[in-house]
Simulated scan of single mutants.
Amino acid sequence: MELYPLLRLVHILGAAVLFGSGAAIAFFMLMAWRSGERAAFALVARHVVLADWVFTASAVILQPVSGLALAHLAGWPLTAPWLLASVGLYLFIGACWLPVVWIQMRVKRRLAETDGPDIPADVHHLMRIWFALGWPAFAALTAIVWLMITKPVG
Score class of each variant (00 low, 15 high):
Asp118Ala: 09
Leu68Gln: 06
Leu126Val: 02
Leu78Phe: 14
Gly88Lys: 06
Phe138Met: 10
Gln63Phe: 10
Thr79Met: 11
Ser86Phe: 13
Ala112Leu: 12
Val87Gly: 02
Arg110Met: 07
Gly134Ala: 13
Arg128Tyr: 05
Ser58Tyr: 13
Glu113Ile: 06
Val87Ile: 10
Arg106Ser: 01
Val123Trp: 00
Leu83Gln: 05
Met105Tyr: 08
Gly94His: 01
Trp97Glu: 10
His72Trp: 15
Thr56Arg: 02
Arg46Met: 12
Trp82Val: 00
Pro136His: 07
Pro99Thr: 09
Arg128Met: 04
Phe92Asp: 09
Ala85Lys: 04
Leu91Ala: 04
Ser58Asn: 15
Gln104Thr: 08
Phe55Asp: 13
Leu73Phe: 13
Leu70Lys: 01
Ala59Glu: 02
Gln63Lys: 04
Leu89Ser: 04
Leu91Val: 05
Leu43Cys: 13
Val54Leu: 14
Thr114Ile: 01
Tyr90Gln: 06
Leu126Thr: 02
Ile61Gln: 15
Gly75Pro: 10
Pro120Gly: 11
Ala112Ser: 11
Gln104Trp: 04
Met105Ser: 13
Arg109Val: 08
His47Asp: 14
Val60Glu: 11
Asp118Val: 07
Val60Cys: 14
Gly67Pro: 12
Leu111His: 01
Trp82Met: 00
Ser86Arg: 12
Thr56Lys: 03
Trp97Ser: 07
Gly67Ala: 07
Ile61Asn: 13
Gly88Tyr: 08
Trp130Gln: 01
Ile93His: 07
Ala132His: 07
Ala137Val: 03
Phe55Cys: 05
Asp52Glu: 15
Gly88Pro: 10
His72Arg: 10
Leu68Ala: 12
Leu50Phe: 13
Pro136Asp: 10
Val54Ser: 11
Ile103Asp: 00
Val87Pro: 03
Val48Arg: 07
Pro117Lys: 10
Trp130Ile: 04
Phe138Thr: 14
Arg110Gln: 12
Ala74Trp: 06
Lys108Phe: 08
Pro99Phe: 09
Trp135Lys: 10
Ser86Pro: 09
Leu126Asn: 01
Leu98Ser: 04
Ser58Val: 09
Phe55Tyr: 11
Leu70Ala: 02
Leu78Arg: 12
Ser58Lys: 11
Leu126Lys: 05
Ile129Pro: 12
Met105Leu: 12
Val123Ala: 00
Pro64Met: 10
Leu126Cys: 04
Val48Cys: 12
Val44Glu: 14
Phe138Ser: 07
Arg46Gln: 15
Ala71Tyr: 11
Gly134Phe: 14
Asp115Pro: 02
Ala59Gln: 05
Met105Cys: 09
Trp97Met: 06
Val123Gln: 00
Ala45Gly: 08
Val44His: 13
Val100Ala: 07
Val54Thr: 12
Leu84Glu: 14
Ala74Glu: 09
Pro77Met: 00
Ala45Cys: 10
Gly94Arg: 03
Pro81Thr: 05
Trp53Asn: 01
Asp115Trp: 06
Val87Ser: 01
Leu111Arg: 01
